[in-house]
């Protein structure tokens, strides 16, 4: 499993995470899929609608999700997953992430430590509902 991501899309995710720190940011990933390879062409930030501690939790409103599916269809893109940040934590999914995760989706997680970018990794659930890491390939391809 590999996830190709354009420099622009990657930079947008990191900037959203930095600007939202110390809260968690979140958003959608759009692109194309060929076999086991995914190419992220576009990302879209959305508000973290979690009632409560946004520094360790994120939630996306149902209506925002509905709009994301419609956006993908209208633009001939595939909704490939979501991203979120882990402020002052590694870019590794927590048990909370795993339990709430959807099949199929790529989960890009960006770690911000003390307000600075640390790491970015991507994960996908396997058939046993466990996360497996996706290899991230930085792509020069621009949309």
């Amino acid at each position: 499993m590999s996830l190709h991501i354009t420099n622009d899309a990657r930079e947008r995710i990191i900037q959203d995470a930095l600007q939202t720190f110390p809260d968690e940011c979140c958003g959608f990933l759009y692109g194309t899929e060929t076999g086991d390879e995914r190419l992220i062409l576009e990302v879209q930030a959305v508000g973290n609608s979690k009632d409560g501690d946004k520094r360790r939790r994120f939630e996306i409103k149902a209506l925002d999700y509905l709009r994301a599916e419609r956006y993908a269809e209208a633009n001939n893109l595939q909704l490939l997953g979501v991203y979120h940040s882990h402020p002052d934590h590694p870019s590794v999914p927590s048990e909370h992430d795993r339990v709430a995760a959807q099949p199929y989706f790529s989960y890009v997680i960006v770690s911000i430590l003390a307000g600075k970018y640390n790491t970015l990794q991507s994960w996908r659930l396997n058939e046993d509902s466990q996360f497996e890491q996706e290899t991230i390939v930085r792509s020069q391809f621009s949309n």
Binding site: E24, C26, K50, R56, R57, F58, E59, I60, A62, Y65, L66, E69, V82, H84, H86, P87, D88, H89, P93, S94, H96, D97, A100, A101, Q102, Y107
Partner: peptide
């Protein structure tokens, strides 16, 4: 009718 999965998570 739209089926919408809840999207959530968090660091710890």
């Amino acid at each position: 009718i739209s089926i919408i999965p809840a999207i959530a998570g968090g660091s710890h």
